[in-house]
Each structure stands twice: as C-alpha cells, then as structure tokens.
Amino acid sequence: MTTLLHIDASARPGRSDETRFGSHSRRLSALFVDAWRAARPADPVIYRDVGQSPPAPVTGAWIHAAFTPVDQRENWMTETLAESDVLVDELLGADVIVVGVPMYNFGVPAQFKAYIDNIVRVGRTFGFDLSRDGDPYWPLISPGKKLVILSSRGDFGYEPGQRLEHMNHVEPGIRTPFAYIGITETYSVAVEYDEFGDGRLQASLKSAEDAIPALVAQLTKASVAA
C-alpha cells in the first residue's frame, strides 16, 4: 500500500467548490485525494490541517532542544519537541505528500512555514557534522517519496518563463527545504486569476482540475510499478 499525507495550509476553512469564500488550494487537494482513493481505495490517508491548526513556531528553546543529543535532553526538551516529533513521524511514514498551499504575499502562509520549520530537524530529517569537511549537512530521508504542491494565486504569470516568475516563492520555497531533507521528486498544479474572479479564473480552475486526474493516474501507475 501507498500512504498519503494530505496537508492543507489555507487560512480559509472551506473549499471554493462548496462555499462562496472557500479555498481553491483546499479544493485541489481534496480533488487529488478523492481521485487517489477512487483508484486505490485501500491506501491510507493521513490528514493534517495546518491552516486551521498551525504548529507552534520554532523558538529559542526549540532550537536548544533540537540540537541537544537525545541522550542528554532534559524532560522539558522532549516536551518542547513533541509536536515536531509527531509531524516528522507522519512525514516519514508517508509515500506521497500532497500539500494545498495558497500564495500569500508571494510566499507560503506563515502556518505552512511553521510546518516546514518543525519537520526540518537535525538528527531526524537531516544530518549535521562539522567534521565532514565541505559537506557538514546531508539529507536523512531515503529517496522515493513524492511531493505534490497544489497552489492558488491572486494574480497570473507566475509559471516558469512568465512575467512574475521571479516573484513566485511558493513552489521554490517548498521544494528547497523538502529537497534538503531528501524529498526531491515534486509535481505541481496551480490556479491563477483569483483576484479577478472572472472567466479567466474559471478557465484556470478547469485547467487545474483537468490536470489532477492525469497526475494521479501517473503517480498511482508508478506506485504499482514500484
């Protein structure tokens, strides 16, 4: 079986196909998971809504605890890292990570940045050793996991080669830390024109919704082949 980790990061609680002010990224991530379940109903799905229940941001105490060797940690350190441990365990147990992440001010929502900061963990998802000359950091997650980024944007033209590519820090801002810990196989679909709310938005939504079943078919086929 293949385990999916489904994460939503929008501050909007509903889906745009169910409520007037709902989230497009939640709509896309739900469509992806529904299509996956239709193709592989036995596969387990873990769901985490960081948009509505964000992880605690990293603090000085968190950093102190994370960089203290496990056998030297005091009780308060273990308690400080407890939420991060749960998030890391979920990530390690997943084969496909599906994230619904809207663009907020050209980057990811603060809630999802807090998630990233909690899963990029020394000793758990990346290694660190100053004695390794020239290469003190390395990923600890084995290859094979897949990351699917489903996003939405108010403006348009953020794709590679387009007018606002240089201002898009969503997909690059997700791919970089995930690759750092070892998750390098990524796929993405995005909706644009949200602020316009006209036919261009509807066309973008249709294009994204049409792309998702094909992506699911591609990944489920690869999963069976593996």
Score class of each variant (00 low, 15 high):
158 Y>I: 00
222 A>P: 08
200 R>F: 03
24 H>Q: 15
182 G>K: 12
183 I>E: 10
78 T>Y: 12
16 S>E: 10
48 R>N: 13
213 P>L: 00
55 P>K: 05
11 A>E: 01
216 V>R: 03
220 T>H: 07
168 N>P: 01
64 H>N: 08
131 S>Q: 10
120 V>D: 04
153 R>E: 00
5 L>K: 13
181 I>F: 06
167 M>S: 01
48 R>S: 12
199 G>Y: 04
196 F>T: 02
183 I>M: 09
101 V>T: 15
175 R>F: 05
203 A>K: 06
153 R>D: 00
114 A>I: 08
209 E>M: 06
209 E>N: 07
35 A>T: 09
124 R>K: 12
46 I>E: 12
11 A>V: 10
66 A>G: 11
103 M>H: 07
204 S>L: 02
81 L>G: 13
52 Q>N: 10
113 K>I: 03
152 S>N: 03
89 D>K: 15
133 D>K: 08
194 D>C: 03
6 H>A: 12
76 W>S: 08
194 D>G: 01
77 M>W: 14
90 E>S: 14
30 A>R: 14
203 A>W: 03
132 R>N: 10
206 K>V: 04
217 A>G: 05
123 G>P: 02
54 P>F: 04
32 F>E: 13
184 T>Q: 15
163 R>I: 01
59 T>H: 04
31 L>C: 14
74 E>I: 09
71 D>L: 01
3 T>M: 11
150 L>S: 08
16 S>T: 05
110 A>G: 02
11 A>R: 11
46 I>N: 07
75 N>G: 07
57 P>H: 04
222 A>F: 02
222 A>K: 08
200 R>N: 10
27 R>V: 08
157 G>Q: 04
94 A>N: 13
32 F>D: 12
38 A>N: 12
150 L>R: 09
202 Q>M: 07
123 G>A: 09
172 P>D: 09
48 R>D: 15
16 S>V: 02
14 G>P: 01
41 P>I: 14
191 V>N: 04
1 M>R: 08
115 Y>F: 06
223 S>P: 00
20 R>H: 12
99 V>P: 15
134 G>S: 03
135 D>T: 05
54 P>Q: 06
86 V>L: 14
